[in-house]
């Protein structure tokens, strides 16, 4: 599984959303991405990439797109690689 597939799966498993809706998805755009859903998403991402995210990054993780930037900048996880 590529990093992008793992990343997408983390969102799909957490929110039950379609893959085509992911690129523009932002925090609280959908009912499932509330604060509780956010923690499920973070758990999925941490599990998928075997990382432990800083609380500041969890708070800053505001969209599907920005999440990619955070993972690349702070955890050496390049989703597009």
């Amino acid at each position: 599984m590529t990093n992008l597939e793992k990343y997408d799966k983390a969102f799909i498993d957490a929110f039950n959303v379609a893959a085509e809706d992911l690129p523009n998805l932002k925090y609280q755009d959908i009912a499932a991405w509330d604060s509780v859903g956010h923690m499920s998403l973070m758990a999925n991402i941490e599990d998928s990439f075997d990382i432990m995210m800083e609380v500041e990054d969890i708070m800053d993780f505001s969209s599907y797109a920005h999440g990619k930037e955070i993972l690349k900048a702070n955890y050496e996880v390049d989703i597009e690689a």
Binding site: M39, M42, A43, E46, D47, M52, V55
Partner: peptide
């Protein structure tokens, strides 16, 4: 509290 936050996340995961 900081330490507990991380350990709780391991439990929740």
């Amino acid at each position: 509290i900081i330490f507990s936050q991380y350990i709780v996340r391991l439990m929740q995961r």
